[in-house]
């Protein structure tokens, strides 16, 4: 009886069943707090007392260099943001087309399925780095008339090609997870194959794959650093320049922080979306 008393007051919501970060409740808070402090203090103690800590602190955590390099790395990070926002928008479309191509039934569509499979196998199998090199350095070298030599463009194309293959498989797993009886119901009402896909199968499939989709987007966001190899001055390249100028690795830390600041909220957003969808569908009665 005694353990319950302090927990009930500020808990209006029913217990959550999601796999998002669960905050401990009631008496659990104290245990969680003590446990967290002990674990992190222990880890900090080991780190700070390591024999080489002084050197590491100097070359990775230099406050002055941090302050100096911060504005220019921040500026360069906007390039990363522009790249992945553009890439994500394109990938959502390209990958969906690939997934739909791969899901077309019947012998007539065999060549389309084959093309989709070859595409996905190829671009998932080849390291993204190579694709970006080949496109970014190879195509401008061809000097094709009317074709841009902009490395940023070709780097972006490389990211879209590679990540569309991954995201297409995510979409496809979603499409495959929708029971065939849903399509049967749609077709029985006179909807065409494409209408069934558009209005019945895909809306359910996409909803199911939002978490793995955003997971792939986190991977993509980090991969924008690969474009530095084409000479594009984004956050990683800018940090590299700053680091070699200062003989100190602290600028890399800034880059890492920027990527974290971006991906961690995306992970929490994923959790929130899943939770919201669950509530919308299962808590209808309470809401009205």
């Amino acid at each position: 009886m005694s353990g319950i008393a302090d927990s009930s007051a500020n808990e209006p919501l029913p217990p959550r069943r999601s796999r998002s970060l669960r905050r401990p409740r009631g008496g659990g808070i104290l245990i969680a707090a003590v446990s967290t402090i002990v674990v992190f203090a222990g880890l900090g103690y080991v780190l700070v007392n390591a024999p080489g800590w002084a050197r590491v602190q100097e070359s990775f955590f230099d406050a002055e260099i941090f302050a100096d390099a911060f504005p220019e790395v921040a500026q360069a990070f906007l390039v990363n943001v522009r790249i992945f926002l553009t890439a994500e928008a394109l990938i959502l479309v390209v990958a969906l087309l690939l997934a739909v191509m791969r899901s077309l039934p019947g012998p007539v569509f065999f060549p389309f399925r084959l093309m989709a499979v070859i595409y996905i196998d190829f671009f998932r199998g080849v390291p993204g780095l190579l694709v970006i090199y080949l496109l970014g350095l190879g195509i401008p070298a061809l000097r094709l008339p009317g074709v841009t030599n902009d490395v940023l463009f070709w780097g972006l194309v490389g990211l879209v090609l590679v990540w569309s293959a991954y995201v297409a498989e995510v979409y496809r797993s979603g499409i495959d997870s929708i029971h065939p009886s849903q399509e049967a119901a749609a077709r029985s009402l006179g909807l065409s194959r494409l209408q069934s896909l558009r209005f019945v199968v895909l809306p359910q499939a996409v909803r199911r794959v939002i978490p793995p989709l955003l997971n792939d987007f986190i991977g993509l966001q980090k991969d924008t650093a690969l474009l530095s190899l084409l000479g594009i001055v984004e956050a990683f390249r800018r940090a590299q320049i700053a680091a070699s100028a200062a003989f100190d690795f602290t600028p890399y830390l800034i880059t890492a922080l920027f990527f974290l600041v971006l991906t961690v909220p995306l992970a929490r957003l994923t959790d929130w979306l899943v939770e919201r969808d669950r509530r919308k569908r299962y808590a209808q009665v309470g809401a009205r």
Binding site: S181, A184, A185, A186, R187, S188, G190, L191, Q204, R281
Partner: peptide, 20 residues
């Protein structure tokens, strides 16, 4: 087939409503 199915309704054992 799409046109023909418009005029023929079918109700399934498992309802098959669109859950979304």
């Amino acid at each position: 087939a799409d046109r023909i199915r418009r005029g023929i309704g079918i109700v399934f054992q498992a309802f098959n409503l669109f859950p979304h």
